[in-house]
Design a protein around this nucleic acid. Structure first.
Length: 447
RNA sequence: GUGGCUGUAGCUCAGCUCGGUUAGAGCACCAGGUUGUGGUCCUGGGGGUCGCGGGUUCAAAUCCCGUCAGCCACCCCA
């Protein structure tokens, strides 16, 4: 009986049964509608990209998490025969890791796109990460991006779009944390931290909320950053959190002032849209992805350790494909994260899609007669399941309960002769024998 | 990548400490309780090489080692 083949899906990947699918579709429908209302148009790209497209865009951690697709046939045999094959020799393609890099490739490749290409994309991505709560190896992202402009309007619009999605889904308490890569780098440099330790410092700083100042001191000390520099950085960041500090940064020279002024502009502009009340300056927000250059964003809710989404400006990424540099900004919502919080908070409306009517066939009624009746009921707009066998009525009604159909329609010899069906309301226990049009009217009225 | 917890029927678990008939329960599933009426109830039934591999022993679900998988926290991210 038990099979030697595991029936579980691969680690970090899941099957979605009807109740899951219905909830996922519900969220996706809202995302799609809101994104389109902002003027974004859809894009779908292949599951698999060339490794050259993917590698070197996300930083070393990201490269490690890429699912690679093995060479086929002769190429693989040749690589293996060499005996010294490395990962790069064995694979030339990989599963997409996010939707931003494929977008960058598409924009670099299609020169006839609108100057301001506003696209949304809702597709799965894969990361060979260790699964945890709210983290999967296959998950869906809902991205909105604007390419071809460095205008703060684009930054404000992507923030507005995701904020409106969350608002329409019923979220009220989320924060969109904002920081700026250039501002952050200026603060790190100001603390005296060497440029080659900057990336390291940024990653550790991102943990400030979770591990606290002492945790950051310990971790940076282990990585060889002098304590005096760490203290200087922490002091600077603590000051940066004080109200009005962004305005003081804004009058500074160089990258510090530039970053601060760009954030000020973003806050001022986005305030006129749905994101306004949710934007929060967080000087310790760093974000791991390598390609961000300007403002960076992350959506936070109190009851989830991870984020609901993230994004930022990446003015250098499209240019990495060897064509002209094109500025871009985008935001990504994590479908599973949103679903997780909505499930935990009980935020879903009732979303039934199963059959409204189970059509029961009595013994002696021809299969064709049942098909004919089911077809008539369906033509009136009902979702109808036809019980396959003419078994005992009790068994058929029991099955109706099992699949949670609110009505049963009974087709016996009498009904066939009269051109009627007996409609039974399974919750109330009442029933009436009616022509199909009246059956449909009653079922539809019961919703 | 680090630390911890857990793997026994489709699902949730008991049994393990102190090895000993044929490994249990609830739910689910199937069949019956005669005619075209379900949810409750009663009776019966199918379904497990106790995650996998090795070791100790007369004897292992139970003890020991290894391994794989899942979950939680951290890290990172969506």
């Amino acid at each position: 009986m038990s099979s030697p083949i595991s029936t579980k899906p691969p680690s970090g990947m899941r099957d979605f049964l009807a109740p899951d699918v219905v909830r996922r579709r519900h969220v996706i429908a809202v995302v799609q509608r809101v994104y389109e209302s902002f003027g974004f148009v859809p894009l779908e790209t292949p599951t698999i990209e060339n490794l050259a497209t993917l590698l070197g865009k996300y930083g070393p951690e990201g490269d490690q998490l890429l699912y690679r697709v093995l060479h086929r046939r002769e190429k693989l045999q040749r690589a293996l025969a060499a005996g010294t094959a490395t990962e790069l020799d064995l694979a030339d393609e990989g599963l997409r890791y996010d939707l931003t890099v494929p977008l960058a490739r598409v924009v670099a490749n299609h020169r006839d796109l609108p100057q301001f290409y506003k696209r949304y994309q809702i597709q799965p991505v894969w990361r060979a990460d260790r699964p945890a709560k709210g983290r999967f190896r296959e998950f869906w992202q809902c991205d909105v991006d604007v390419t071809g402009t460095a205008s703060v309007v684009a930054d404000a619009e992507v923030c507005g779009a995701v904020a409106e999605v969350l608002r329409e889904l019923g979220f009220a308490d989320f924060r969109i944390l904002c920081n700026h890569r250039e501002l952050l780098r200026a603060l790190v440099a100001e603390a005296g931290i060497a440029p080659q330790q900057e990336a390291l410092a940024l990653i550790v700083l991102d943990k400030l909320d979770k591990v606290g100042a002492d945790g950051v001191r310990t971790e940076l000390a282990e990585k060889g950053v002098p304590a005096a520099q760490t203290d200087a950085l922490l002091a600077t960041l603590a000051r940066a959190r004080e109200p009005g500090q962004l305005d003081r940064f804004a009058v500074a020279e160089g990258a510090l002032g530039k970053g601060a002024r760009e954030l000020q502009a973003l806050f001022a502009t986005a305030a006129a849209g749905p994101a306004g009340a949710h934007l929060t300056f967080d000087p310790s927000l760093a974000r791991g992805l390598g390609y961000y250059t300007g403002p960076i964003f992350e959506i936070q809710v109190a009851d989830l350790a991870g984020s609901l989404g993230g994004g930022g400006r990446y003015d250098g990424l499209i240019g990495m494909f060897g064509k002209q540099p094109i500025p871009a900004v985008g935001f990504s919502l994590g479908l599973e994260r949103i679903l997780l919080v909505m499930e935990e908070r009980g935020m879903f409306p009732s979303l039934g899609i199963g059959p409204q009517v189970l059509l029961c066939r009595m013994e002696g009624v021809a299969e064709a007669a049942a098909i004919r009746t089911a077809t008539a009921l369906r033509a009136h707009g009902l979702r109808v399941e036809l019980y396959p066998d003419a078994t005992k009525l009790g068994k058929q009604l029991q099955y109706a309960n099992t699949i949670a159909a609110p009505f049963a329609a009974i087709l016996g010899g009498n009904e066939v002769a009269a051109g009627t069906v007996t409609l039974k309301d399974l919750a109330a226990g009442t029933q009436a024998t009616l022509p199909p049009a009246d059956v449909a009217a009653r079922v539809l009225a019961a919703r």
